[in-house]
Design a protein around this nucleic acid. Structure first.
Lengths: 196, 196
DNA sequence: TTGAAATACGAACGTCCGTTTTGTAGACTC
DNA sequence: GAGTCTACAAAACGGACGTTCGTATTTCAA
């Protein structure tokens, strides 16, 4: 754990920079300056920019899982986990876990048309995993009779995610607090009208 | 109209490039190559990159208005215009009016943490105007008795926009068609449960 | 104490960036 | 037809980019 100390600190800073400037806007020189090292020192750990970007995505995924996903396993399955996930996501954004907002949404919309950036697949993969998790939790809640049996779990996931996306736009407009309020109301409404 | 012909063709290409690579990723050399001109020729029309970016945002706004906003004025006020706006937005995205998807959503999430980019304010301004339009149409529909009187028009705008954002994520995941289907269903559901 | 491996510096490379300057065609005006 | 103006090409600038390399420092084992 304490091994590779500098590699970890490089990654932690790089993740924050990438969340603000984008995965493509991330520069080795910028990272070097941010951690007070030389560019050569960075390249010793990450032989190419693509390698650094891949490691950054992986690290961001760990952070996201720790902040949003893992809290649900302390709760009973079904609807309770769905509520916990929603709350955790709002907390994750409010806490500015990533300085630039939601790392993966930023990255997905940044890279979706740039097939030459290798990290694109990794970003999409992580994003898809998150959506599948929401859908799985909905299926679970349906099976337990907590959500309506006829509910389309895919559409449920779409609408729950969409509320989170709305917050990001409101944040971009400088109305973060209003965005949270609207998204919480919308999410809650979704859960209420999906309840059995 | 035919005046400043090359300026217009530069802008049209620059808008497309910016929608794919981002407003910050837009480069004068790239634009020059795309329109088969020299960098100096570009700089003759746009004395600085910031000037070019500002003109690109303005041009993108014109395109967006023409594709999404103007069609509603051919329709009767109220709910009908709301439906038309929604349809026009889906058509606008499906037609790949901008190669990179939704120019303004991309730009907003790209720039929301980069206060050093001058175009940020213009992007946020255009985005806010679109949201206000949705809200105004909702108020209009409420006043005409087409939507419920207790409806929160701000929340309505939030949820309608959120569905559009969902499509953009699905598009980023390579599931554009499914995204359209889910968003149409969600938008329609929103209109149905908001109806008087 | 010595040797080897790990670590990071600092300089250099070629490329691209935004910008400025200079040169040069072709179209206007007088 | 000489002068002027516009539109663009071409070249160069300083700087930042990603990457490579030689070297100095540190760490640890033998």
């Amino acid at each position: 754990m304490a091994r590779d100390n500098s590699r970890e600190s490089i990654l932690d800073r790089a993740v924050q920079i990438a969340s603000v400037k984008g995965l493509d806007g991330l520069s080795i020189g910028g990272v070097a300056a941010a951690v007070a090292m030389s560019k050569g020192g960075i390249c010793a750990h990450f032989p190419s920019k693509a390698t650094l970007q891949a490691a950054v995505v992986e690290r961001a995924a760990e952070i996201f899982r720790g902040a949003v996903v893992e809290p649900i396993f302390a709760r009973p399955p079904g609807l309770e986990r769905l509520r916990t996930l929603t709350d955790a996501w709002f907390s994750y954004l409010a806490a500015e876990t990533f300085e630039g907002g939601c790392f993966f949404t930023n990255a997905l919309l940044e890279l979706d048309n740039l097939e030459e950036v290798e990290a694109r697949g990794a970003v999409a993969g992580q994003y898809g995993r998150y959506l599948d998790l929401i859908e799985r939790l909905a299926v679970e809640a349906i099976a337990r009779g907590e959500l309506r049996a006829e509910l389309n779990s895919r559409r449920f996931a779409f609408e729950l995610l969409s509320s989170q996306l709305g917050v990001l736009v409101w944040r971009g407009l400088g109305k973060t607090e209003e965005g949270f309020a609207l998204a919480r109301a919308a999410s809650n409404d979704l859960l209420v009208r999906s309840a059995a």
